[in-house]
């Protein structure tokens, strides 16, 4: 078995265990928090019998352990329960809200990698000179300003004062959403050949994705810079220079690839964290995403929905980690070949 496949299987098994642990934790924590979900769902005017009936229907009067049994039984049948807030199956809600968030986070992640890494590389190559000072100033600014503040600033400047970009939403009014295939508007529009809709969706993505990505861009630039500077001190870079390798090639490949290894791991976590942090940005840009949904259901103590959302976010973290580990093991031959060498 190839070492990469082995790594994959190992990590998948581990991920399932983590998911099980998270589900148990969030299941009990959500239920221990004070407040009656049935009462919140029905409102202050509902009668005591109605509340009691709902509690009975949702097994809320059973001991916690028994409730967990019901949860597991539903889960085995692929059912995450029903939201008390939207009154729809939680899975259906997630399917409706997750793609909007994913689309946002993907674009933001892309910006993080495509802008942050080259910026850090540029700074490292011109250490303590003009480009470095500028890049460091920009990245500190980006890191220490919260995403929702960026959201408001971007809206104000680029959607209001200079109305270049749309203020909010996923599509302009009058533009019909593309047929639902993946739920990602850009992808669906592309798949069905509606290029106008795709551009419109992309156009709407730019501001919220930028707001969400800025701190990640700053973070990745800073990480790349420090990792590159450390790599530049390595003997193999001295060797490369002594052998006349082009400075640009060293920056782009020879020093960049080893420097990427520690950077990527942290970037993966940053990327996954954006899923959870997207809430305020979604709020500012009226973006119908999962983070917003998650906050709503927590405030309403919507038990099934809380568990569902947390599980999805945890799964995203795990998947991201897995992907990052795979990329790192491809870049780092020591990991990939460790197995062979041991034998």
């Amino acid at each position: 078995m190839s070492p990469i496949l082995r790594l994959l299987i190992h990590r998948l098994a581990l991920s399932l265990l983590v998911l099980a642990g998270v589900s148990i934790l969030i299941f009990f924590v959500a239920r221990v928090v004070p407040g009656d979900p049935a009462r919140i769902a029905l409102g202050p005017n509902a009668g005591a019998e109605a509340v009691e009936a709902l509690r009975e229907e949702r097994h809320l009067n059973d001991p916690l352990i028994v409730q967990y049994g019901w949860f597991l039984r539903d889960l085995a049948g692929g059912d995450l329960g029903t939201s008390l807030y939207t009154r729809r199956p939680v899975l259906q809600d997630i399917a409706a809200y997750l793609p909007a968030t994913l689309e946002l986070v993907f674009i933001a992640g892309l910006m993080m990698v495509l802008v942050g890494l080259p910026l850090g590389r540029l700074a490292a190559r011109h250490q303590r000179r003009g480009p470095d000072h500028l890049a460091r100033f920009l990245s500190v600014l980006a890191v220490c300003t919260p995403a929702f503040v960026w959201g408001v600033i971007l809206q104000l400047l680029l959607a209001y004062v200079w109305p270049i970009f749309p203020l909010e939403g996923r599509l302009s009014t009058g533009v019909a959403p593309p047929p639902d295939i993946t739920g990602l508007y850009t992808v669906d529009a592309l798949l069905t050949g509606q290029f106008g809709t795709m551009l419109n969706a992309l156009y709407h993505l730019i501001l919220p994705a930028t707001a969400l990505a800025l701190s990640g861009i700053g973070q990745s630039a800073r990480l790349t810079r420090s990792s590159m500077i450390e790599t530049y001190r390595k003997p193999y870079i001295e060797m490369a220079r002594a052998y006349g390798f082009k400075e640009g090639r060293i920056a782009r490949r020879y020093a960049f690839r080893p420097a990427l290894i520690p950077t990527l791991t942290v970037l993966g976590l940053d990327f996954a964290a954006m899923l959870a942090n997207a809430f305020l940005v979604e709020r500012v840009f009226v973006w119908p995403g999962l983070s917003r949904y998650g906050v709503e259901v927590i405030l309403r103590k919507d038990l099934d929905a809380i568990v569902g959302v947390v599980l999805v976010i945890a799964a995203m973290f795990l998947i991201t980690n897995l992907v990052v580990d795979l990329i790192v093991s491809i870049i780092n031959p020591r990991l990939r070949l460790a197995e062979k060498r041991g034998k």
Partner: peptide
């Protein structure tokens, strides 16, 4: 001089293993 590095003037180092980039063949 920079243009001569690696072909007209070359160098050998203390520790060959650390002078070769670990992530390239």
């Amino acid at each position: 001089i920079a243009a001569m590095r690696g072909h007209r003037v070359t160098m050998i180092f203390q520790d060959p293993t650390s002078a070769l980039n670990p992530v390239f063949r």
